[in-house]
Nucleic acid binder design. Structure first.
Lengths: 229, 229
DNA sequence: AATTGCATACGATCAGACAATCCGTCAACG
DNA sequence: CGTTGACGGATTGTCTGATCGTATGCAATT
């Protein structure tokens, strides 16, 4: 029997610590905890109903991902991101997504391209409405497709944590008027380049998209940093 | 008193867990534990003389870095890397190091270039001798310079963990006869391109170097995988 | 008002316990 | 003889209680 990897029963109820980790990550990414907030062990224990061990290990994981920062003897807080770091994050993101676009264009199958198109259509449609939830969901789905098509798990992992960290900024380009429409157009360009199997164009389109998004976000960010002073 | 950052007493004795983490990482990278080896909690407790808490948290950290893999109820083992994953790792590495070279060439200062040259000279000299330790040390030092010059901490972090993971393969290109000499030449090309402040050339030189190194390593790796069957 | 000193809060670490699970062994069974 | 099933040891998963060191806020003192 060639263990066809199908029929894999949920084998494990995913150790507690992983569950806590996921819950906490979601809570942070979704804004339930905001940058600078302290994450007190006992509170988290109560919140999730688990022991300190699991909480602490989950915190270590998120710390490794850059989502939380621990200060010795003061405990973990949700990471803050300054303008410079944000710039660097966007820089890498452009690089990696460009790579994904390139690889996708190089060896993406027909079905994958179709799936990408589909995801794009959903995103474009969501952009028409005013449902922010849907907008974010469809955009995330699109990126999932994009990264999957590149066929490089290492990069995919990196991008996932990058996205999470950037979300911490909670300053998506899409908060700017008119930016959404342009964003859709840029993403469309990505899809076209990939469908045309043009690696260079796909790479460029991805970078371009991120660069513009970064521009919008960073502008607001540094302006806000100014105010804070 | 303006706390001149001098006289900083080891302020924080770097929490135990971080120490364990560093020791363990070094032990793995250096080959004291080899891929596939089990890492049994209690043994590590004895080895490092610390409690289970610290060991477990350190393990979580290394797990996040990809150096160890945990199987439910069977515990952590040193990660194994298959050929496909190795290919992906090298792919990203080339991408990121190319980025570093580019950025370095774009805005590297004179002193930084001088330091890079110096590190290169040391590496070239070590390549003449037969001291493997020195060879590795000088090459690592060179990469440190290279990454520092790029001025992007995010990328630097990523590359550090990438390097660690790749070291797991313990199949550096340099085990091949004649490869060392060519390697030195390739690295020289990187230095020249950066010194000439030619971003494109620097990017290309970095990628090229990694690609060739990857070629040598992957060849041996897949050949060995063949044997194993 | 500034400084000092104390009480409290909280993380860091350890030790010990119990349950759940994996794995090898070995006997029973067809 | 091969398969099945049960048993036991090993190890992780998780929780809890306790101790220690450090940080922080408040109050007393000068």
């Amino acid at each position: 029997m060639t263990s066809d990897s199908e029929f894999q029963v949920p084998r494990r109820s995913a150790s507690l610590r992983v569950l806590v980790e996921e819950q906490l990550r979601k809570a942070i990414v979704v804004g339930r905890f905001r940058p600078g907030d302290r994450l007190i062990e006992r509170e988290l224990c109560d919140l999730f109903g688990v022991g300190r061990t699991s909480v602490r290990e989950a915190l270590r994981q998120l710390e490794a991902e850059g989502l939380v920062t621990s200060y010795p003897h003061r405990g973990p807080v949700v990471s803050k991101i300054d303008v410079e770091e944000a710039r660097q994050l966007y820089d890498v993101r452009g690089l990696l997504e460009g790579y994904c676009g390139r690889r996708f264009a190089e060896h993406g199958g027909a079905e994958e391209i179709a799936a990408l198109r589909e995801a794009y259509a959903a995103f474009a449609e969501a952009a028409e409405g005013s449902d922010r939830e849907a907008l974010i969901a469809t955009k995330t789905a699109f990126y999932d497709r994009l990264m999957a098509g590149a066929g490089n798990l290492v990069v995919r992992r990196m991008l996932e944590t990058l996205h999470n960290r950037i979300t911490l900024l909670r300053m998506t380009s899409m908060t700017q008027p008119g930016r959404i429409g342009r964003s859709v157009a840029e993403v469309g360009a990505i899809v076209e380049a990939i469908a045309a199997k043009d690696p260079d164009a796909a790479d460029a389109a991805c970078r371009d998209h991120i660069e513009r998004a970064a521009g919008a976000a960073l502008a607001r960010l540094s302006e806000e940093a100014q105010d804070a002073e």
